[in-house]
Amino acid sequence: MQEIKNLILKDIILEWRQKYAFNGMVLYVVSTVFMCYISFKLKTNTIEPITWNTLFWIIILFSAVNSITKSFIQEKAGRQLYYYQIAKPSSIILAKIIYNFLLMIFLGFLGFLIYSIFMGNMVENIPLYLIALTLGALGFSASLTLIAGIASKSDNTSGLMAVLSFPILLPMLTMLIKLSKNAMDGLDMSVSYDEIMVISGIDLIVIALSYMLFPYLWKS
């Protein structure tokens, strides 16, 4: 436990020292939202609720892929070897997942705030929407962290990252869009229990798999 906590703290401190990476992610979200604002809201001044929702999730997906890609290439190979010697692989992956989860929660909530300011808020049941966002952040961070581990071993990290992660995230994404559509329509929480259960199930599977498979990745 202590080891995981130290590793998370290390990641946060590292992020704080190189603020440009973090600012880059925030700017990425903001500028994407602004681009959508210019091309949708400013031109036609109408946007369908379904388009609104899907666009938001695509922004979140892309910023997730973009920010989690760096998980393992940020630090030099020598330092990774050092971690390999002092920490268990299982605590490294858990620490990375928790850290990326916090990061995604932050980016998602910030994105949602900016998005609803620029594009207008169409959500009626905001708590449910935020639940969808949290579940999505958990699933994205768990699966993308493992895939970032795989992709970081190759030369073409960012290209491979997109190819490997999009098909895997698709089932989760369709469920999330469905759940958040329920939230937009202002349906009661009890209607969406099915979706919440399925998404939590997928999240659990993904976390368990990352936990089990990461030691094999770490060896190479």
Binding site: S143, P167, P171, M172, I202, V206, L213
Partner: peptide
Amino acid sequence: FAFASFMP
């Protein structure tokens, strides 16, 4: 990993 996310 892919198999497990393909099944659901």
